[in-house]
Amino acid sequence: MTDANPTSATGREPHTPNTLPISAIESLCSDVEANVSRVIVGHDDAIEHVITAILGRGHVLLDDVPGVGKTMLARSLARSVDCRFRRVQFTPDLLPADVTGVNVFNQKTREFEFNEGPVFANVVLGDEINRAPPKTQSALLEAMAEQQVTVDGTTRELPDPFTVIATQNAVEPNQTYELPFAEVDRFMKKLTLGYPDADEETELLGRAVGHHPIDSLEPVTDLETLVRARETVAGVRVEEPIREYATRLAGYTREHAEIGVSPRATISLLRAAQARAVTDGREYVIPDDVQTEAPVVLSHRIKTDSRDRDGASVVEDALEYVRVT
């Protein structure tokens, strides 16, 4: 999946049965956004980012303090689409089999049967992923990269679409297993939500007291539409100037940080930009799309050598100094 060429452009052709008109996706996105906003107050940017990540065939890492609505965001998104949603609460004693599933001996048939784990879903919420040991983390990460799981030597395909929304807790660093750098790279985006501002929190409280709105959330679209929307996004036009611009941005991060972004990051960036272009009603990517996506797509993949600078500031500089055309 990650090796697919994001630049193959077919956007100009009339939509085939597998694709949707751009306007349809645009309205679909705003529908989903409106739906989610009934539950999540504020965080419009984050909602958009998660939606574009799903359309761009990526996975999202939400990184924040507990209780700001990370899980709620993931759940409400999953519910807005009529699809299979599973949640895995990562704990220190969680085993890989708890994620992928396990072969169980059926006494009745006297055969081993595969018990699918929570990863067999369209949207998987990996809660507090950094609380599980690396072995368990990697079980999920393999699924993310390959869209398949291997149990006892048998490889099983995961459903399509398959999106992982993982959250990680920024507090209690001594009780967590920091995600390895290589694995963070597999998340298309890393988002932080932050606390809502005072007005938003007041409104949130008004909604959440009594019946939680998530219970009444109805799906606004179905799985098939989502598949076709993702197909359409993959065909969004990315012209050479854009590809060169992304290359220049990547080059800048490599020159100005200890470890810059990988080509996988550049691919992710362009896929996110494709999705962003569609949500804006365009069938082609413009530099602004890249610039909007670059901070969330690139920052978490950059390792700096000084404490004063983090990945976000490197990306900020890149956007400030790298020429657009």
């Binding site: 956007g11 012209e239 365009r282 069938e283 082609y284 413009i286």
Partner: peptide, 8 residues
């Protein structure tokens, strides 16, 4: 310009 450069 945008369409000419990026939009095909």
């Amino acid at each position: 310009y945008e369409r000419a450069t990026y939009g095909g």
